[in-house]
Design a protein around this nucleic acid. Structure first.
Lengths: 160, 160
DNA sequence: ATTGAAATCGCGCCACC
DNA sequence: GGTGGCGCGATTTCAAT
């Protein structure tokens, strides 16, 4: 299915990660090939799963979502079925934007976004009452210091 | 600068957040207006800062970045200058993809991505030695349970 | 087998109503 | 907010290496 990527593929991924709306013509110019093979490479990268999708980045604060909170959740059970149950719960909760299962003392970390504190507190009440939730610790985000794209491709560009 | 958004604007933002490469023609069809005014709205939303950019989403695991870690960092100083200094440090570190300043007992939470554990551990050594870093606690991500777009616009679509 | 060149087709984007 | 139209980019076909 997926073979090795050459330098051109890596450059394509880097450009697309940086600007999801770059035109194929411009992309081809930047990576040093002509548009048709460039487009074929992009399609292949999409099909093979390197590119999972494209998103517009919205500004939560400007849209009235002033409250961002990280929540650490500890469950009373680590049985796979219970973990799956908790994942289903957070997937159904619009306020939860990201959920990561962790090793160590905390089982899950949630990134939550809400229009105001009251809405968030109401959600925390639901969260605390969810099955097998033993402990919830929340930390309010004061400000975002860095928000880079998901993959540090520059670490790989150097390698062959 | 920014006024209130109507239902059409919200629908546009939702579609763009979901698919950053949607064509203007398709977008116009979905929100129920013709392409030219639709494009004008998008440009306005971009200029006013509701849309901050567009990104392709890459799959870290498929690209050989198998290690995702959340790091909690506690500083020995909360002076603004020292906070800014720490922010400058993480912005220069490719492994750090996100950094959030928090209220409560932890000062910062970092989302880090690395190709392997050795690379990450090497980074932690640098991090621990950074100015005013008192304490670092790391949690390895076992799996990602949810990764939604940044803003839960569906919470606002209902409102007028 | 993969690239690049040419040609077609649809979209982005500007005019104006 | 809608209509019309021009030019560019996306996409396919095909020749060439």
């Amino acid at each position: 299915m997926s073979k090795s990527l050459d330098q051109i593929d890596l450059k394509i991924l880097q450009e697309i990660q940086d600007d999801g709306r770059i035109t194929n013509v411009e992309l081809a110019k930047r990576v040093g090939i002509s548009p048709p093979p460039c487009l074929r490479r992009v399609r292949t990268l999409e099909e093979e799963g390197y590119i999972k999708g494209y998103r517009g980045l919205l500004d939560p604060a400007q849209l009235g979502f002033d409250v961002t909170v990280f929540a650490s959740v500890h469950l009373s059970s680590q049985a796979e079925a219970d973990l799956r149950g908790f994942e289903a719960f957070v997937r159904a909760e619009p306020l939860v934007r990201e959920c990561w299962m962790l090793s160590g003392e905390v089982d899950f970390i949630l990134k939550c976004v809400a229009p105001d504190m009251a809405t968030f507190q109401n959600f925390v009440a639901h969260l605390t009452a969810a099955p097998h939730v033993r402990n919830v610790r929340t930390s309010l985000v004061l400000r975002n210091s860095k928000y880079a794209a998901a993959v540090p491709l520059e670490l790989k560009s150097a390698a062959t």
